[in-house]
C-alpha cells in the first residue's frame, strides 16, 4: 500500500510538471499579441511594458522564460498589474481558508445526501419512493447554482433576514462562521447531491446483479448486511472517482459562481476577478493552482481506490 502511494505521488508530480509546461505554452506561445503588453494592462506605459518584459523573462529563451515565470508564481513574487498591484500568491493563500471552508462543508452535505438518497432510491428501485427521490434529484441537478443562490439571498437574507447577508467570517468564531456559510454550502451542494444520488443508484443497481451479491445472500446474511457490506461498499468506487475530481476542481477555484454571489473572497472569487480583468499573471497562477488541486485529489482518489479495491493495489505492486 505504501509502495503504491509513493509511486502515485511521484506520478502526480510528473503530471503537475507537464501541466505547468502546457499552461505556460498556451499562455505565452499561442497568443499572437505581445504577452508583456497583456500583463502590463491596457493603459500601460512603454516603460512598464519594458519592466514587465524583463521581470517575466520575455527577452530570454523559452526554457528560461518558463523557469522565470514559474519562479515568480511559486515563490510568491508575481504581482498583478491590472488588479491594483496585488501580490497574486498572497491573494490565493488568503483565499484558501475561505474556499476550503466552503468546499469541505458543501462536500459533507452533498456526500451525505447524495449517498442517502442514492441508497434509498436503489433499495426501492422502480417503486414510488424511487420515483419521488428521482424527481427531487433531477430538480436538484437542473437548478442553476446562481439561480438557487439568488433565491436564497433574496428570500432568506433580505426578505426574512434569517441568515447574515454574505461575506466570510473566520473559523475562530464557529457560530458566525457556520451561519455565514450555510447558504453557500447548500447552494453548492444541491447540484452535486442530486447528481451523486443518481450515480450511486445506478452503480448500486449494477452491483446488486453481481454474482458475489447472490453469494452473500446465499450465505444467509441479513438483507442489511448484504446491502451495506457488499452492495454499497462496492458501489462507492465510482463515487470516489467523481468526488476526487469535483472536489479538486472546486477547491482549485472552481466555485466561481457561489463565491462571487455570496461575496466569499476565496480562490474562485479571485478567479472571477482575474478573468474579468483579463489579468494574465493571475489567470495563469490560478490555472496552475487549480491543476495542482485536481491532480492532488486525483492522486488521493487513486490511493483511496486502491484501498477500496485490492486488485488495483496488488495489481500494481505485482508488475
Amino acid at each position: 500500500m505504501l509502495r503504491f502511494a509513493v509511486r502515485r505521488l511521484l506520478g502526480a508530480i510528473a503530471v503537475l510538471f507537464a501541466i505547468s509546461v502546457l499552461v505556460f505554452l498556451i499562455f505565452n506561445v499561442v497568443p499572437a499579441t505581445n504577452p508583456a503588453q497583456r500583463i502590463a494592462g491596457k493603459n500601460a506605459t512603454p516603460q512598464l511594458i519594458k519592466n514587465v518584459e524583463k521581470e517575466w523573462g520575455f527577452d530570454k529563451s523559452l526554457p528560461e522564460q518558463y523557469w522565470t515565470q514559474m519562479k515568480l508564481i511559486f515563490t510568491g513574487e508575481a504581482t498583478s498589474y491590472s488588479l491594483a498591484h496585488i501580490n497574486i500568491d498572497e491573494r490565493i493563500l488568503e483565499g484558501i481558508p475561505v474556499t476550503a471552508s466552503l468546499c469541505i462543508g458543501a462536500a459533507i452535505i452533498w456526500l451525505a445526501f447524495g449517498i442517502l438518497l442514492g441508497y434509498i432510491s436503489a433499495m426501492n428501485a422502480g417503486g414510488l419512493v424511487d420515483r419521488f427521490v428521482t424527481v427531487i434529484a433531477l430538480i436538484g441537478i437542473s437548478m442553476p447554482v446562481f439561480w438557487l443562490a439568488s433565491i436564497f439571498l433574496y428570500y432568506l437574507t433580505y426578505k426574512v433576514e434569517l441568515f447574515p447577508a454574505s461575506g466570510y467570517e473566520p473559523l475562530s468564531n464557529p457560530g458566525k462562521w457556520a451561519s455565514h456559510l450555510i447558504l453557500p454550502w447548500i447552494s453548492l451542494a444541491v447540484l452535486f447531491a442530486g447528481f451523486y444520488s443518481r450515480v450511486l443508484r445506478s452503480s448500486m443497481l449494477d452491483v446488486m446483479n453481481e454474482d458475489y451479491v447472490r453469494t452473500a445472500r446465499a450465505k444467509g446474511l441479513s438483507q442489511r448486511r448484504v446491502t451495506v457490506r457488499h452492495v454499497l461498499r462496492n458501489s462507492l468506487i465510482p463515487i470516489v472517482t467523481l468526488f476526487g475530481l469535483d472536489f479538486g476542481v472546486l477547491i482549485g477555484g472552481g466555485a466561481i459562481i457561489t463565491e462571487s454571489l455570496f461575496n466569499l473572497e476565496g480562490v474562485g472569487y479571485f478567479t472571477a476577478e482575474a478573468l474579468g480583468q483579463q489579468d494574465f499573471p493571475s489567470i495563469m497562477a490560478v490555472t496552475i493552482f487549480g491543476a495542482f488541486f485536481i491532480v492532488l485529489f486525483n492522486t488521493f482518489v487513486d490511493i483511496a481506490y486502491a484501498y477500496l479495491d485490492p486488485r488495483i493495489r496488488l495489481g500494481t505492486s505485482a508488475v
Binding site: 509502495r3 509513493v6 509511486r7 505492486s317 505485482a318 508488475v319
Partner: peptide
C-alpha cells in the same frame, strides 16, 4: 518448434 521455452513472472518489491 519450441525449445527450452521459459516464462517466469518476477515478483517485484521495493518502494521506488
Amino acid at each position: 518448434e519450441v525449445t527450452d521455452l521459459v516464462k517466469h513472472f518476477p515478483i517485484k518489491s521495493g518502494l521506488l
